[in-house]
Amino acid sequence: MESWQRAFVLHARPYSESSLLLDLFTENHGRVRLLAKGVRSRRSPLKGCLQPFIPLLVRWGGRGEIKILRSAEAISLGLPLVGSMLYSALYINELLSRVLEQEGDYQALFFDYLACLQALASEGGSPEQALRQFELALLTHLGYGLDFLHCAGSGQPIDDAMSYRYREEKGFIASLVIDHHSFTGRELRALAERQFPDQITLRAAKRFTRLALKPYLGNRPLKSRELFRQFVRKQPDSPIDEV
């Protein structure tokens, strides 16, 4: 890939004494794994720019599963993410690293990711609205299609006052059972519109996205969630308890 691509670093880890192994999220090629040779040396011009949340232009080459970074440059300064917004951004990076196939077609998701980062960088309160909207966008791009506005059992439009139980791969079925898998019609309408006007709909959205993402993530815990919990323990006034 010798043409320039817009990209963000999702994750970087040391590789040998002077190199990095990078997971990038690129505009036209989705998640790409690159070997960045010599970039940890003191003389490398790339030493400071291969960091998460810095918009990049990159070029790479090679035929194997791990490509070779040819060149990179920062388009602008890194997005101003601090506190809970920073940990929330680390969470969405880990999500993408875990669930996206390498070199898939995720161009539309790239812009959803950019919009989420920009929202987190500009938010002054809770990051939850931006996180839930991104998780729902991610599920859509993964091919997870659910009808939030009709009962999967009867096909009838949902009633805001009724309760519906989520069944994986089937949808929402009217039920009198109230448990962790149950959602009101009003909560489902909020999910369909990706707009959460209050804490009730926000909590319902978090509950749903946890259920829906679990098959993609498996049982291995997310490191970013543990980091967020550690942050919250030190910041008792944090607007949320975990991402």
Rank of each mutant, 00 (worst) to 15 (best):
R70I: 14
D159L: 03
V177N: 03
L211A: 11
R207C: 10
E103G: 10
I173H: 08
D198I: 05
A161T: 01
I75R: 13
A115K: 03
V39C: 07
S41R: 15
A130F: 03
S18M: 12
K67M: 04
V58M: 14
E94Q: 00
A119D: 06
P14N: 07
P197R: 09
F172R: 07
E168S: 15
F111Y: 15
F148Y: 13
H180M: 10
F148N: 00
V82P: 01
P197Q: 00
R167Y: 06
R98N: 15
Y15F: 09
C116R: 03
D23P: 12
L96F: 09
Y113K: 07
K47V: 13
Y216T: 10
F148A: 00
Q5G: 11
L191I: 04
R13L: 14
S16Q: 12
N93E: 08
A130L: 03
M162A: 15
L136Y: 02
A204I: 08
Q129C: 07
A74E: 15
P239Q: 14
V39E: 13
S122E: 12
D198E: 15
E73I: 01
A108R: 14
L191R: 06
H29C: 14
L90Y: 04
G155A: 09
A7C: 15
G155N: 06
G83Q: 10
G38C: 01
L69D: 06
A74H: 10
A36T: 12
A7H: 14
L136W: 04
T26L: 07
K67W: 12
E128I: 06
Q129M: 11
L139M: 05
E2W: 09
P221T: 08
R207N: 11
L100M: 01
L146C: 09
S122Q: 10
A119C: 11
P221D: 13
Q102F: 06
E101R: 11
F8R: 11
R233T: 03
S71C: 09
R229P: 03
R229Y: 02
Y113E: 10
L117V: 02
V39R: 05
A121W: 07
G83C: 00
K223Y: 11
G171R: 09
S97N: 08
A137K: 04
L114V: 12
Q230I: 02
E226V: 04
R42C: 01
P52Y: 14
H150A: 12
L109A: 00
R31K: 15
L217H: 05
S18Q: 13
A72Q: 02
R203F: 05
E187S: 14
R59K: 02
R220M: 05
V243S: 13
P221M: 11
D237R: 09
A119I: 00
L10S: 04
R59C: 02
E27H: 00
L35M: 15
I173T: 09
